Computed example of a mutant assay.
Amino acid sequence: MNLLAVERIKLFSTRSPWWCALITVALSVGFAAILAGATPTDEPIALSATQFGGSQFGIAVVMVLAALAVTTEYRFNTIRTTFQAVPHRSPALVAKAVVVALVALVIGEIGAFGALGLAMLMRPDDHLGLHTTQDWLNVAGLGPVFAISAVLAVALGILIRHSAGAIALLLIYYLAVEELVQLIPKVGHHIHEWLPFNVANKFLRGSVVVDGPAPSDSPLSPGWALAYFAGIAIVFLLVALGVAKKRDA
């Protein structure tokens, strides 16, 4: 618990987490407001469409927050003090990942329910609400996806240690690589089915074609999709912990 408290204090001692949290919520709620205001009143909007800002862009900002939580310590060499206080290193890094994941979880839930609430206020006749299990996953599921994405970003931050490099790699992969993989002849589609953020999208949106981006082509059920996504994050974190133990701070 002491390590968790220390990591919480370190995380919120800088401005970047606050700004990232504010931007993420603003993206989630802002896109919902734009959609609700721009869609003609005789065309009802889908619940999943209200989550477009968070599920498409909020994840990227949360991963930037998570990567900075690690790389900033390497940049200013405060990580040396951390490792001197915790010589085995892994407990401190795991505590950091847990704290960042919990913060990401809270940000995701605030953004998701805030977007839904605003859309319901602006479009009272569209009967938006959490009527099915998939509706709940689409909204409440954003927090767990944010949390797992944050763990992935922490792991990458530990491996790369440089803010610019870690953020660039995260954003390029999230925004471009998974889509470009589909262009590989013959095998691209099959590879894409198992890529992490495509699988996470299956958990959030299922297989129903609604407004917004095309649904995931992952063959997994939503529950197994979340487990698979979490498994990938845990594997990356374990690899990062192993590397952190072997090299100089």
Rank of each mutant, 00 (worst) to 15 (best):
M1R: 08
L4G: 10
V6Q: 13
E7D: 12
I9V: 10
T14C: 06
W18S: 09
W18P: 05
A21Q: 00
A21H: 00
A21K: 01
L22F: 03
T24K: 01
T39D: 05
I45E: 08
I45W: 07
A49K: 11
A49H: 12
Q51R: 06
Q51A: 14
S55A: 15
F57T: 10
L65F: 14
V70Q: 10
V70L: 07
T71W: 06
E73F: 01
Y74K: 09
Y74H: 15
Q84H: 08
Q84D: 06
V86N: 09
R89A: 14
P91C: 12
V98I: 15
L105A: 13
A112N: 04
F113M: 15
L116D: 12
M122F: 04
H127V: 11
H131R: 15
Q134T: 06
V139T: 09
A140S: 07
A140H: 02
F146L: 04
A150W: 00
A153N: 10
A155S: 13
I158D: 08
A164L: 13
A164M: 10
G165Q: 01
I172R: 01
Y174R: 14
Y174W: 06
A176I: 08
V177P: 00
V177C: 09
E178M: 11
E179I: 09
L180A: 15
L180V: 11
L183P: 02
K186G: 01
F197C: 03
V199K: 06
N201A: 14
L204I: 08
R205E: 05
G206T: 05
G206F: 07
V208G: 01
V208W: 00
S218E: 06
P219R: 10
P219I: 07
P219S: 13
L226A: 13
A227S: 11
I232M: 07
I234N: 13
V243R: 12
V243L: 15
V243Q: 14
V243D: 13
A244W: 05
D248P: 03
